[in-house]
Design a protein around this nucleic acid. Structure first.
Lengths: 232, 232
DNA sequence: CGGCGAGTTGAAGGACATCAAGGGATGTGG
DNA sequence: CCACATCCCTTGATGTCCTTCAACTCGCCG
């Protein structure tokens, strides 16, 4: 496939400027896993910027391993994290030609990069691919709207409750979760300050709803209590 | 087109339960305006529910005229409006089989209804339709993420400034806007209370940034000042 | 040990919410 | 035409949740 070769060369040359390295270059479409095997696999170090706000949107990404975040900045340093990206999550699909948020690696991250043009070309040929692209975007939209409800109308306690429930569900874990992100990341995700996040976590611990053996490790002791807080 | 006939019959029977009436039933795809002429045209009265949260998502909608809102509810009556829908806007495209928010007519509203299955079938046949579907969804995603930034990290003054700028832009109007929505709608869109919306508007009027000849009619006197408030 | 970044905790302040009352437009009936 | 009701909006007084500012703790690493 011609575009794939050219694409790979572009990525490799770009990688010099970044804390990233090409791991594997696929050359075949897999219609079963639809977008899974297109493009190349790339690794970013913890803290690295995967792409910047306003950067041309040339690729679509899927997380293979690790955790990343999408974020937007406002003047005087205010930041809003739009989503935490974990294994299997797609991101970087923009309606316009430039990214309208930045993506950064929270931990070391491995991603599949698929060139936008190749993805659209494939979508034009194979309805399944087109449907998959749409489906991914629609799911991201769902998540974003759900998040708007949290940001606009939930209290700090409900926000933390919702966040912990979400993380538990996404880690497929019954009652223990490891947080890859800092308190600042959580605060910027929930529209709170780092101090309020900390205080609210402590409050939940005192109430016996959770335990905090360490700041990044949370034990959910009363899962039902969290569900009640999440409302929805 | 078989599905169109069946679809129309379904819609007509459903309309009995609602404050809506079928106006026109299209029977041909228009690949130029892509989704524009598929499906039927329906009218909803001011205040009518176009679809409810959790209702099966059978149709995709486009506003022909009037203004609508999408909203989600939380316990104790808290409400978040996800978007105001105006001429040309598409809504109701869900990743799942049920709507994850409700849609309601703010003014009398005319919409195109396109059956989901017909839209997807068309997308399978015509890449342009698939691309248009994706594009619409991606734009909605962009808007939703932009809105998250507002909800999570802007002050009341910035929220109102952003809101007025957005409305001015969407009405394609230089310096005067008519608000179809109530203060309560604005409050639920911006994550504020009705009182704060009112006070902030007054504050902007006192500062000479806007004029309020009536509560629903706003004159933007210093457009630049609003842009400054919107930040971004 | 000492320094640093991340997280926690306390005290004080502020932005927005809540509670309460009043104004202004529109409609209805006498 | 006015009385009256209703709805939407505005304004004021008070309250509170979250932020801000500041100090301290903990774990980690040279």
């Amino acid at each position: 496939m011609l575009t794939s070769v050219a694409t790979t060369r572009n990525i490799v040359s770009e990688m010099k400027d970044r804390a990233a390295s090409v791991i594997h270059s696929g050359s075949r479409f897999a219609t079963s896993n639809v977008l899974g095997l297109m493009g190349v696999t790339v690794r970013y170090e913890r803290g690295a910027e995967i792409f910047a706000e306003e950067e041309p949107a040339e690729y679509i990404y899927q997380i293979v391993s690790g955790t990343a975040r999408t974020c937007k900045l406002l003047s005087n340093g205010r930041r809003q994290i739009g989503a935490f990206l974990m294994k299997g999550d797609y991101f970087g699909m923009e309606a316009r030609d430039t990214h309208c948020f930045a993506a950064e690696a929270i931990t070391d991250v491995t991603v599949h990069m698929i060139s936008r043009s190749a993805a659209f070309a494939a979508a034009g040929r194979e309805p399944e691919v087109a449907r998959a692209l749409w489906d991914i975007t629609a799911r991201n939209l769902d998540a974003s709207q759900q998040h708007s409800l949290l940001l606009g109308r939930k209290t700090a306690l409900e926000k933390i409750g919702s966040f912990l429930s979400e993380m538990a569900e996404r880690q497929g874990c019954d009652d223990e979760i490891d947080l890859a992100m800092s308190r600042q990341d959580i605060a910027d995700y929930l529209g709170l300050t780092i101090e309020t996040v900390s205080r609210t976590m402590t409050q939940l611990e005192c109430a016996g709803t959770i335990a905090l053996p360490s700041s990044r490790h949370v034990v959910l002791k009363r899962h039902i209590e969290l569900e009640r807080l999440s409302l929805c």
